[in-house]
Design a protein around this nucleic acid. Sequence first.
DNA 1: CACCACCCCTGGACGC
DNA 2: TGCGTCCAGGGGTGGT
Length: 282
Amino acid sequence: MPELPEIAHLKGSLEPLLLGATVRRVRLFRRDVVRTAAVNLLSGRTIRGLVRHGKELALVSDTGRTVLVHLGMSGQLSFCPTRRRLPRPDHVHCVWTIESQGGPDGHSVRGRLFFRDPRRFGGLWCFDSLETLESERWSRLGPDALAIKAAILSERLRRTTRAVKTALLDQRVVAGIGNIYADEILFRAAVDPRSSAHRVPAAKHRDIARAARAILASAISAGGSSIRDYRDGNGRAGRFVQRHKVYGRAGHACVRCRTTLRLLRLAQRSTVFCPSCQELFR
DNA sequence: CACCACCCCTGGACGC
DNA sequence: TGCGTCCAGGGGTGGT
């Protein structure tokens, strides 16, 4: 579910609560949500840093030991103070009891960080160090979409014949773009999602890179898009959904030209675009 | 190698 | 109210 802006906002919302916090206890309710052979979920460790790449978030501890969280379609990573009960205890697969320094007046706060994921498309991965995570996993991903350089993206899109939207969804090409923002980015860049990536002119590749940076950045500042269950580290919903120009607006008028927005399926994903504003290259 | 269809899993919305 | 169908922001894999 969550794409780059939701994870980036999540990171920002968790940092005040988790940085410098110590993990007092870890309860894992489903072994199979940990996707690595070894399980080390930072019991006893102090959290030193949160690092994001694309849609993935890593919790890095004082010893370097790192837990990677991927939320998949329905995952949530959230903090709940000890005195409150978990908002939804069903499908909670892992709970870290932590002592945090992030209280309102700098007082320590005890609470639980919990990973909840009804569909279980997400998961947790354990690594000895951030460097191991980067070399074993993140090395397979493309550059982060939030700061994607036009020349790099263009060079990557030129190498594939797939539909440009399919290429943008491929995390090996560029990391962080999912179904919502792919449609929003292509609308802003005025490129038809069905266009073959290598037929799109380089100037348009640059427009796509610029649109990606602009849309992702403004979605982060709006707290992301909450379609159904996305919530930030404090359980709050995102507001960017109010600014979607195409996603979820099939059959409605294009905000730019009033043409009816079309819905089709591309790479098994629903795709909304304006057949008039968005140019098709084939 | 590149691409595509299919599968993984649950819950919510909708039609009857 | 209950049941069936369809849909959903994610990715991996095996076949062509």
